[in-house]
Write a protein that binds this DNA or RNA. Structure first.
Lengths: 199, 199
DNA sequence: CTAATTCTGTATCGAACGTTACAGATATGG
DNA sequence: CCATATCTGTAACGTTCGATACAGAATTAG
């Protein structure tokens, strides 16, 4: 075991608290004072653990991704593409509006820094959003090879359609939309899903 | 005519330049230095004309709305609801990705301040986005009374669906999506549009 | 027990923030 | 042509920003 005074805080716990601040105020709106106060630690501890504000932010992104991975796993392993699409959009409708008061409504990857003085932040968020789109596209490409999607369907476009819808739903949620309203929107969106002929 | 030294700048011109800065860097990421430099004026001129940073931002929102009003007018006065939906989404696909280099891709009302230290900013933007949703809903409510939409169609949900899609498309555009890609997404979205029986 | 190591709290750093005081410039009204 | 009014540029205001220097506390290694 390594020497030295042990860390007095749990990394995941302080990341969760920092997430809430970045989420509500945005990357630039979240001051170090806001962050350290919410995390319950002092600046030197923060800098020792995460390097700087951007390092903390990137650690929060990873933590957020880990939280959302469970939904993506369920989506990718759904029995058929239509179920995958439904699980995805209904999952987004649920977590983005029904937060249990633990964080703001919406999606961290959408709200915390779409535009920023430092362009690295929007780019980092965009890459993590694109990762979800790739996961969906990979799933739908396999589906089409297996004949679960019609010949004319474009897996990339379908994946893009779903994440576009999801991101839009998160914006609606951030402005106060309820889970019920989001589910109605998701229902309309899913009625666009290509059906297999004869099914 | 009123006395005093005349203003040396055109209000609309400097608002357009401020819009670009707020759009690219966000409300909090845009410093007064960034703004005055882009606008070509000095701080006292800015404060005399717009009060403060938030006043300037709200003036920019109005200017942005005026720019977008033409599209909304065309959408609301389209011959039938399906055409309105198509005009709306294709219009968004066009202006959000094809900017002519004059401003960042996407939508000002989405990118410039979803999350903010001062919660008034996200709220002001949300209200202006909601205004578009109301215009669409009003249009679709009239359509349903006139029998241009099926009985089961919910005008509020359809309007919400369209702005959700539009906002999502703007996020895709801000991350680099092309007009072509956005139009393909819009095509999928429009295939969800309710058809009149027998048409 | 001592030396070495790592974390913690206090207190503060220079830089950048939004904002404004002030004096000079430029117009109109009489 | 003078008084009044408004705008302009310079220069600076107090505050807050992200980030650290430093000394003391708490641990392990030997």
């Amino acid at each position: 075991m390594k020497a030295g005074r042990p860390r007095s805080f749990c990394t995941d716990t302080v990341l969760d608290r920092a997430m809430t601040v970045f989420w509500r105020k945005g990357y630039e709106g979240a001051s170090l004072h806001d962050l350290t106060e919410a995390m319950g630690i002092n600046p030197p501890s923060l800098y020792a653990a995460f390097g700087n504000k951007e390092g903390l932010f990137r650690a929060v992104i990873e933590r957020y991704d880990a939280r959302r991975q469970e939904l993506m796993d369920r989506v990718v392993s759904a029995p058929d593409p239509r179920s995958a699409a439904r699980l995805f959009l209904e999952g987004v409708a649920d977590f983005s509006a029904d937060t249990g008061g633990r964080h703001p409504p919406g999606c961290f990857l959408v709200q915390s820094g779409l535009s920023c003085s430092d362009a690295d932040i929007p780019q980092a968020l965009a890459e993590h959003r694109a990762e979800k789109e790739r996961a969906l596209r990979g799933r739908f490409e396999r589906d089409r090879k297996e004949g679960l999607l019609p010949e004319g369907a474009n897996p990339a476009t379908l994946a893009s359609y779903l994440v576009t819808m999801a991101n839009g739903m998160c914006i609606q949620a951030s402005a106060g939309a309820t889970t019920k309203q989001l589910r109605e929107i998701a229902d309309v969106a899913l009625s666009a899903w290509p059906g297999m002929p004869g099914k």
